[in-house]
Design a protein around this nucleic acid. Structure first.
Length: 503
RNA sequence: CGGGGCGUAGCUCAGCCUGGCUAGAGCGCUUGGUUUGGGACCAAGAAGUCGCAUGUUCGAAUCAUGUCGCCCCGACCA
């Protein structure tokens, strides 16, 4: 009997965090690099997580009155030119389609021909094409609000990519709304931010800070940008979702105007908001450990896996029958308003091998069932949020009766663990000296965590922070904070901002 | 786009500096046997135009030139 490796993932988080992240994704069969530079193949297990995220978010969007629609992948180049800040923000990372045909050249080479009159860009985001459409739809205040979301892929030609966190093509949803008043549009912006925060905390078990971005970090063309910020296990920040109040910037550029109740021609107020497959990166970096992926039950494609153990054919028959009926009983239970998701791994593989595969994929509960369990009317149960060796025996009826509670406990435990991690790396900072001490020298690659400090938005500070690879993550909304003075400039500050290193 | 590195079996790589038998290893895969409640062992087997092109040479994975691709580090970013 060979000794099991101490950890399933090498290197460990402490040894090399970025490499650990890549290995977890590989070992958990979530995704892999493709033949196309910067683009990933999302494997079935990873895609199933995305589908669960979509299902929950889609429901939340519809409960707040939004409808889904679909807009084109291509955007005429001229559309992007309409909003100045928007051009500035996205021009450097656009894929451009210039031809529409291929001709067979020498040596079997295909040569692009059929040059387009006006090049098309592959959408990096859809404000412009959707805005142009809304301009046609909106005539009267009676046509507002327009509350639409689309599930789509977008392309941003990033020079450095990382699986899930920053890929050239990624999947996301983008909501685009148009309103008759600024107040209504701002309320929409904040409502969607709340939905993202609720989703992150209640489903992903990932604590987030809701806040507003500084001028320098704002979405190109937005009046104000809000985000949810999460802290990863390496104490770096991840922007996990954004919601933008676009004011009338885009409606003026695209002529989204209407006659209001007083009969005056008015520009609409618009918003946009999105989350992407980056959430999966956040999920991994929040919960996973040195044995691989750890999934919160609410988003796990399988919440329990049954692992039959047997030697002889007689044992096989009895064990499989026991497993089949247990699977049915468990599937009849509900957790978080859905049927409990159970799979049985029948593959002809060694027990240990199978067990470790499911550990690495992050299945919340493993049930090992062998002849001894069948005889005793029990199961051997192991939780992914505990040590792999930590197994307990439980009577079958008790398991069926408590499975929902158990999944809830794991979900809560993961959230509390993440909250504790964040709290341990978050500090109130009251002076420039404390700030420098907290983050250490600029060349230190390790993130110190979140510093909460008073701050007055000023481009001069951006330069100072940039030098140290720090950013203002956001200015938190939930402000039970007392006013103070900026630790850099001494100017008055209504509340503290969150500083940290970011992905 | 600047700096560095790498292309050899499905994967990870050795061999190259100092050219020479039939190009290797580990993992994975297939088959057979022994095993089995923490990642099995033994045996046999399948698997490679050494990224591509040109050149030097009696002879190139190895040397030269070109070319394509990928990775890492910076600047840019959901």
């Amino acid at each position: 009997m060979a000794k099991a490796a101490k950890n399933a993932i090498s290197p460990t988080r402490a040894e090399d965090y970025p490499e650990w992240f890549q290995q977890v994704i590989k070992a958990g069969e979530l995704a892999e690099n493709s033949a196309v530079r910067g683009c990933m193949v999302i494997r079935p297990w990873g895609y199933a997580i995305w589908e669960h995220m979509q299902k929950v978010l889609d429901r939340m969007f519809k409960e707040t009155g939004h409808q889904n629609a679909y807009f084109p992948l291509f955007i005429p180049l001229s559309f992007l030119e309409q909003e100045a800040a928007h051009v500035e923000g996205f021009a450097k990372e656009c894929a451009v389609v210039t031809h529409h045909r291929l001709e067979l050249g020498e040596g079997g080479k295909l040569i692009p021909t059929g040059k387009l009159e006006e090049p098309l860009i592959v959408r990096p985001t859809s404000e412009t094409i959707i805005g142009a459409t809304y301009a046609k739809w909106v005539q009267s205040y009676r046509d507002l609000p327009i509350l639409i979301n689309q599930w789509a892929n977008v392309v941003r030609w990033e020079l450095r990519t990382r699986l899930f966190l920053r890929t050239t093509e990624f999947l996301w949803q983008e909501g685009h709304t148009a309103h008759a008043t600024a107040e209504e549009a701002i309320a929409e912006t904040r409502q969607m931010l709340d939905i993202y925060a609720t989703f992150a905390e209640e489903y992903m078990a990932m604590p987030v800070i809701k806040g507003e971005k500084t001028a320098g970090e704002r979405f190109p063309g937005a009046v104000s940008t809000y985000s949810i910020e999460a802290m990863m296990q390496d104490r770096k920040a991840l922007q996990a979702g954004t919601s933008h109040f676009l004011g009338q910037n885009f409606s003026k550029a695209q002529q989204i105007k209407f006659l209001n109740q007083e009969g005056h021609e008015t520009f609409a107020w618009t918003t946009s908001w999105g989350v992407s497959t980056r959430l999966i990166g956040g999920l991994i970096m929040t919960h996973s450990d040195d044995d691989g992926v750890v999934l919160p039950p609410k988003l796990a494609p399988a919440q329990l896996v049954i692992l039959p153990i047997y030697r002889s054919d007689e044992e096989k028959t009895a064990v499989l029958e026991y497993c089949r009926s247990l699977e049915k009983e468990l599937q009849a239970q509900t957790y978080a308003d859905e049927r409990v998701r159970v799979i049985t791994d029948h593959r002809d593989l060694r027990g240990g091998e199978k067990t470790w595969q499911h550990i690495k994929k992050g299945v919340p509960i493993r049930l090992e069932i062998g002849p001894r369990d069948v005889a005793a009317g029990g199961v051997s149960l192991a939780r992914r949020d505990k040590s792999p060796s930590d197994k307990t025996s439980i009577a079958r009826p008790e398991l069926v009766a408590t499975v929902s509670t158990l999944l809830g406990e794991i979900q809560t435990n993961l959230f509390e663990r993440a909250v504790a991690n964040r709290a341990a790396a978050t500090k109130q900072i009251n002076s420039r000296q404390e700030f420098d001490d907290f983050f250490g020298p600029a060349e230190d690659e390790n993130a110190a965590g979140f510093a909460l400090a008073h701050f007055h938005d000023d481009p001069a500070i951006d330069a100072l922070l940039k030098e140290r690879k720090l950013t203002v993550r956001c200015i938190p909304l939930a402000g039970d904070d007392e006013p103070g003075v900026c630790i850099f400039t001494g100017k008055p500050s209504p509340r503290r901002a969150v500083f940290g290193k970011a992905y």
